[in-house]
Design a binder for these strands. Structure first.
Lengths: 165, 165
DNA sequence: ACAAAGTATCTCACCGCTAAGCAACTTTCA
DNA sequence: TGAAAGTTGCTTAGCGGTGAGATACTTTGT
């Protein structure tokens, strides 16, 4: 039982025995899994003429409230990208007619982004295939192990200040 | 005890109760942790005039063998990026005098990338600060929990075909 | 021996993100 | 109330990655 990271850790023990590389056992593996997950999810998005960035915005709007609307700032916090990235994502989605931008009624600086009918239809079509893909990616772990893993990851996120909002 | 992903899962239950979003409890958290880790590690790299891509190449060469050398293909497999990305990374590192490219002695298509003295000195200076940063990122979990987490991640990587080589 | 298939590396057009900076607006507080 | 500080969303230059394609070389199979 050994993955690529086990090899990396062995190599560090050989070349730099003074270095305690154990944290790489977690962080290195998360990085590799992230890359593998991303590649697989991207494949599914591509089938529906989408990319990760667009899916992310559409899905966030879909789940946010009954009107499927949110401010760019709200999208930014949820997505963990910069405000510039959100502006560009919205430009693309607006050009495709999947979202609309309207001036906020309460704050003249603000903008309200809303899913169009076409956007709603698209995300509702893609969502089931997305969770399906995710489930397949996790199929190597039992349900109990998946739960255990989720718990550890939550602890870690909380310790790093990840909040509900 | 709740992180941002708990909120996301609640929202899905509210808006799409038909959808079983549990896999997001793992994949969503890994994605968020990846972003947080990346930001913090990047901060450390920047202190030493480095970025993730350059560190990745230098560290891979450092641990690979006593000569600190590897082919571009080897670097590519270890880094999980495309060959084009490796070529460009090597261009940058070569321009800074941190690695050299020499023709392979056994295969005239091949190239052997080797750490220069400057490259070796730089990576050896940065490495301890890097594992230190990683350790701090994981400090929210006990040693036993970190081990447990590493084990689950390894199982997952193995199930997805991640091999030692 | 030779053609076909495979491999190693590089080039380049394009794409999305960051970081810095800006303009417009709102909040705070003396 | 007015000035300072903060917030919101956008623009843009630059960067690093992808994906497609090219070149040069090696391996395979007859």
């Amino acid at each position: 039982m050994a993955d690529h990271v086990d090899l990396v850790l062995e190599q560090w023990r050989e070349r730099r025995p003074d270095l305690d590389a154990t944290p790489m056992g977690v962080i290195g593996r998360m990085s590799r899994l992230g890359a593998l997950f991303d590649a697989e999810l991207r494949r599914n998005f591509a089938k529906h003429d989408l990319d990760r960035a667009s899916f992310d915005v559409l899905a966030t709007l879909r789940r946010s409230n009954a009107e499927h609307s949110l401010t760019p700032a709200g999208l930014m916090h949820s997505s963990m990208v910069t405000s510039g990235a959100i502006s560009q994502r919205l430009d693309r989605l607006e050009a495709r007619g999947l979202v609309t931008r309207a001036p906020s009624e309460t704050d003249r600086r603000g903008v309200l982004v809303t899913l169009t009918d076409a956007g709603l239809q698209l995300i509702d079509k893609v969502l089931p295939t997305h969770v399906d893909t995710e489930q397949q990616l996790l199929a190597g772990l039992s349900a109990a192990e998946q739960e255990q893993l989720a718990g550890l990851l939550r602890s870690l996120l909380e310790s790093l200040g990840d909040k509900r909002d």
